[in-house]
């Protein structure tokens, strides 16, 4: 018998109705994520990636379908997964340490205990010395680190990451990807990752779901069988390049005929 997947989207769809016309944001999607795997969703804007995240996080009820976590119906329940939005959303009036503790605090952990748990992790994952600073004095990369630690510290098995590195420069982004892989190894969570960056998706994932828009849907599931742990040098291996090209071709095929740049 196959191992029960951690997260299942069972024919989840999202249809908006506005005065007579209907708009399908997400055609029925079936998706199974095994425990401890890292999967990525890639696709053009408007393909329903954010809709999937909102539905899984319980922030939006799906039109049809169910979200199952460990086989239990989690549709419409908040606080069942860790969700990191594109922006870091650190509270400017809290120190970095207290920002990282926010999730635990909301879940009822006493603040002193939350701080005790968070402080060693901040030191371990590159935020040592920043604990008592306010977010305004941190660089973009550091802020994302804090936001990600806040997400991981709520002890949810499933973590949703919505383009966490989208706004970072290329060099910081590469550092952050390796940092994320380290966290992924250490924490052993199940990660669903959204990105526009195909190379990022191939580098990080076990599985890539390629999506298309109008209506938003999954067009292909692509297993990435590169060995872990992965080193940066892997990006120039023929296998990596081939998979990246395959993804790009899929995305291009789906994109409307783009006018050739002059």
């Amino acid at each position: 018998m196959a191992v029960r997947p951690k997260l299942v989207l069972d024919n989840v769809s999202m249809v908006f109705e506005t005065k007579g016309s209907t708009f399908t944001a997400l055609a029925p999607v079936h998706l199974e994520v095994p425990a401890g795997k890292f999967i990525s969703l890639i696709g053009p804007s408007g393909c329903g990636k954010s809709t999937i995240f909102n539905i899984v996080a319980g922030l939006q009820p799906p039109t049809t379908g169910k979200v199952l976590i460990d086989g239990e119906d989690a549709t419409g329940f908040i606080g069942q997964v860790g969700y990191m939005l594109q922006k870091d959303l650190l509270l400017p009036w809290r120190t970095v340490l207290d920002n990282v503790c926010l999730g635990m605090e909301i879940r009822g952990t006493p603040m002193a205990e939350a701080r005790d748990r968070a402080a060693p992790l901040l030191r371990k994952y590159g935020l040592g010395g920043f604990e008592s600073l306010y977010p305004a004095s941190l660089s973009g990369g550091m802020r994302q680190r804090a936001a990600l630690l806040r997400t991981l510290l709520v002890d949810m098995d499933v973590v949703l990451l919505d383009e966490p590195f989208g706004a970072l420069d290329a060099q910081t982004k590469a550092q952050m990807q390796e940092w994320l892989l380290q966290l992924f190894n250490d924490f052993g969570r199940t990660v669903v990752f959204v990105t526009h960056d195909v190379e990022e998706a191939v580098f990080l994932s076990d599985d890539i779901y390629v999506m298309a828009s109008r209506p938003g849907r999954v067009i292909e599931q692509l297993p990435i069988d590169l060995p872990r742990p992965r080193d940066r040098s892997i990006v120039s291996s023929p296998r990596f390049v081939a998979m990246k090209k395959y993804c790009l071709d899929l995305l291009h095929m789906e994109a409307p005929a783009a006018p050739v740049a002059a």
Binding site: I78, G79, G82, L89, L91, I106
Partner: peptide
């Protein structure tokens, strides 16, 4: 910020929180 509210709710916060 509406996204900030979204973050709080995704963490399972109550309205009072």
């Amino acid at each position: 910020d509406k996204d900030q509210e979204k973050l709080f709710y995704s963490l399972g916060a109550s309205r009072w929180q």
